[in-house]
Write a protein that binds this DNA or RNA. Structure first.
Lengths: 125, 125
DNA sequence: CATATTTCCCCAACAGTGTAGGGGAAATCG
DNA sequence: CGATTTCCCCTACACTGTTGGGGAAATATG
């Protein structure tokens, strides 16, 4: 049974997955902000969450050598571990079910076509 | 700016939405378990979360009259308030983005076709 | 060399959410 | 009435979310 992850943890795992071999603090923060939009994501929140995910063994990290650009200090690169893959897999499946359930009633919000049938208030006998 | 909801709160809101006028403790619990699968959902967790969502004004409730079935005591029916609709709308949109990002890499998990390209570990210069 | 600038990592503390497990009330049935 | 069924709710604790700020390491500049 996979570890269960919270909402923000899920976002961080997803960011790492989609960044592939370019996943370090700054890029993860950017990607997370993109996914979480319109909500703000603070850098601190990202690092704290990365720490916790690493403690749980869902991800691993290693420090790189510095790059020769201005301010280019070394970066901590992250990657998903098997445990993290399974946790993300499960939680993404739940996200899908939630999304589908909502879309079935309200339609695809992305299409801007939001039909909300008039809803008759519960009238239990 | 809509309230932000957690993962489980999102599930509860979704359950209420899709149950329409049949949303009360027991049915919400069932629907939530279905959405959260394979994770277990305890009834207590559902009620606590319903309370908190009501305190935040995302949902409202009212008590029905008893039904004439065996053990048919009165039920507390829930419905989404405008605030809850907006919160769910936003959080479902995020769920969709997460799902799409994951599906783009791993494919649609529901199809059982999970292609995971061999991943070259980060090799920063 | 000293200072400024850029990029990046990390901590402490608190608020909010997730979860378990059990308690108990109200209704019908025999 | 006692048994059974359906349902609501509380307490307590662990985990997750979030803020705000601190500070190190590298290159550029004069």
């Amino acid at each position: 049974m996979p570890e269960s992850v919270g909402q923000f943890e899920q976002i961080i795992l997803t960011a790492i997955l989609s960044l592939r071999d370019e996943a370090y603090g700054v890029t993860i923060h950017e990607k997370a902000a993109e996914l979480a939009k319109p909500r703000k994501v603070s850098p601190g929140a990202v690092y704290v969450t990365l720490d916790r995910l690493e403690d749980k063994g869902l991800i691993s990290s290693r420090l790189s050598d510095p790059t020769p650009e201005r301010g280019g200090r070394s970066k901590r690169y992250y990657r998903l571990e098997a445990l993290g893959e399974r946790a993300l897999e499960e939680s993404a499946a739940t996200a899908k079910r939630v999304w589908e359930a909502v879309a079935e009633i309200w339609g695809d919000l992305a299409e801007g076509v939001r039909r909300r049938p008039k809803w008759n208030p519960a009238r239990p006998r």
